Simulated scan of single mutants.
Amino acid sequence: MIKVSILYPFREGGRFDSEYYATHHMPLAARLFGDACKGWSIDIGINAGPPGTPPPYVAIGHFLFETLDAFYEVFKQHNKTLVDDIPNYFDGGNGTILISEIKVSV
């Protein structure tokens, strides 16, 4: 199983609309990815550990795919639509993508 994570860095005074991200952008991506997407979730950053410290990331979106090829196949078809939607919820660029292999799931 492959997890594709998009990490949005925290920036003092930056804008991230978590409501839009949760109710519009992520469901749009999941719909476009279709059956290739095996699940998705969102993490909203709270802090960096010590109370009162800003989180390193304001949000992280996760998608699950069986294989890396399955992700690439659907992403290249819908990349423009998804990237064009980013300014609707985030004013700090495109975020950073991390692709990882899930070894253990409980």
Rank of each mutant, 00 (worst) to 15 (best):
I86D: 01
T67G: 11
V83D: 03
D69T: 07
N94I: 14
V83G: 03
G93V: 08
H78R: 08
F75G: 00
V74R: 03
N79G: 02
V74K: 02
V74E: 04
Y72L: 13
H78M: 09
D91M: 07
D84C: 09
A70Q: 07
P87F: 10
T81M: 04
Q77P: 00
V83K: 08
V83T: 15
Q77T: 13
N88L: 13
Y89E: 07
V83W: 00
G95P: 02
G93P: 02
G93F: 02
T67Y: 11
N94W: 09
T81P: 01
V83F: 06
N79M: 13
D69M: 01
L68T: 12
N94V: 14
Y89H: 15
T96N: 10
T67M: 12
D85S: 06
F75M: 09
T96S: 13
D84N: 13
D85T: 03
V83I: 15
D91P: 01
D69N: 11
Q77H: 07
H78I: 08
Y72E: 14
L68C: 00
L82P: 02
Y89M: 10
V74M: 08
P87N: 11
K80L: 09
L68E: 13
N94D: 12
D91E: 06
N79H: 12
T96V: 14
E73P: 05
G92M: 05
N94L: 15
T67Q: 10
Y72W: 13
I86L: 07
F71N: 00
K76Q: 13
K80W: 04
F90T: 01
T81I: 14
P87I: 08
I86Q: 03
G92L: 07
Y72R: 13
P87A: 09
I86C: 04
Y72P: 00
L68H: 11
A70V: 00
Y89W: 15
Y72Q: 14
E73Q: 14
K80T: 12
E73I: 03
D84T: 08
T96Y: 09
F71D: 00
D91Q: 05
N88T: 02
K80P: 00
L68M: 12
Y72C: 09
V74D: 04
L68I: 10
D91C: 04
T96C: 02
K76V: 11
T96G: 01
D69H: 06
N94M: 14
V83S: 09
Q77S: 10
T96I: 14
P87R: 05
V83C: 07
Y72I: 05
G95I: 03
N88H: 13
L68F: 10
D84L: 10
N94A: 15
D84M: 10
F90A: 04
T81D: 13
N88K: 14
F71S: 01
